[in-house]
Design a binder for these strands. Structure first.
Lengths: 159, 159
DNA sequence: TATTGTTATACTCTATAACTATA
DNA sequence: TATAGTTATAGAGTATAACAATA
């Protein structure tokens, strides 16, 4: 970011949202360094973990779990299939429903990356001293609040 | 996000980075609701504030202040100029340097939005109880740590 | 009629690389 | 040679809108 070049950041310095964006950008960059495979982005890693822990997960459920559109989950699974990290399997009862599960190679990828990601995350937490847990708790709180759609709009309408 | 549908989130539940992403996604979505103009994204708003507070700012400096590539700053300024929110002005001494400043319309946009954004941010802070300040402090700390660490390579290239 | 998977399309954000003009 | 601005291009992430097959 290279702050402090006699530049005036105005209201940005006071905004929670701006701090959040800066922190996330920093973390995003760090992720690729920590990850063993540079092509596995944070989003892809998250999807792989979800599929790994919930084999046979439907693609609509996956998209909802990740908070993205269905089409985005399609794209992710397409990408995994092209690299033979996951496969679509037809689920018996409902011919509309397809399940996704990891290939052995996909499982290996997740396992390898999880180790690296855990170390990375632990290092970050350590850098924050004892406040890592506090930060995580507040972030989760914030995410829950904003995801509970109407709450923010209501509050800012009232003020 | 619709968590808790008997879905196993695995290691994601323990990762600071994942909490950060969830929180940021939530905030990003709410920004457009708080903003008076849906086309002014968080990034564009940040750029407008920086130009407003630093009239005549060079586009390379702008890009560095925002932590993005120079080409990204070009695109932003192009977008502002097309909507007559900002103009490029030639700076006297160095014919290579161009300054960017807001038009009256741009200034009005920033002022209007800043009010809405401030209210939105205050509402978030209020929802977090007394912990808003703590969260912001920890995020800034995290951003500084990650930016410092990831700029080591850059710095040694520059020197 | 509603849902799952899918495709097409588009926009935001970001990056790399190469170019032009100037220093 | 170095820097400021620029253009071209690409890829990640996300969304909307439509469609087919199935329920």
């Amino acid at each position: 970011m290279r702050r402090g070049e006699a530049l005036d950041y105005g209201v940005l310095d006071t905004l929670l949202g701006y701090s959040l964006r800066r922190a996330q950008n920093g973390l995003y960059l760090h992720f690729s360094k920590a990850a063993s495979d540079p092509e596995i982005t944070p989003q892809r890693y998250a999807a792989l973990v979800l599929i790994d822990r919930n084999p046979g997960i439907g693609q609509t459920v996956l998209s909802e779990a990740m908070g993205i559109n269905r089409s985005g989950a399609m794209r992710l699974v397409d990408w995994f299939e092209a690299r033979e990290l996951a496969v679509r399997i037809s689920q018996s009862q409902d011919a509309r429903r397809w399940g996704v599960k990891l290939t052995p190679q996909g499982k290996k990828t997740v396992a390898t990356m999880t180790e690296a990601v855990r170390e990375h995350d632990a290092a970050l937490t350590a850098l924050l001293g004892g406040d890592g847990e506090t930060l995580k708790r507040l972030l989760d709180q914030l995410a829950d609040l904003t995801n509970r759609a109407s709450s923010i709009a209501k509050v800012s309408d009232e003020t």
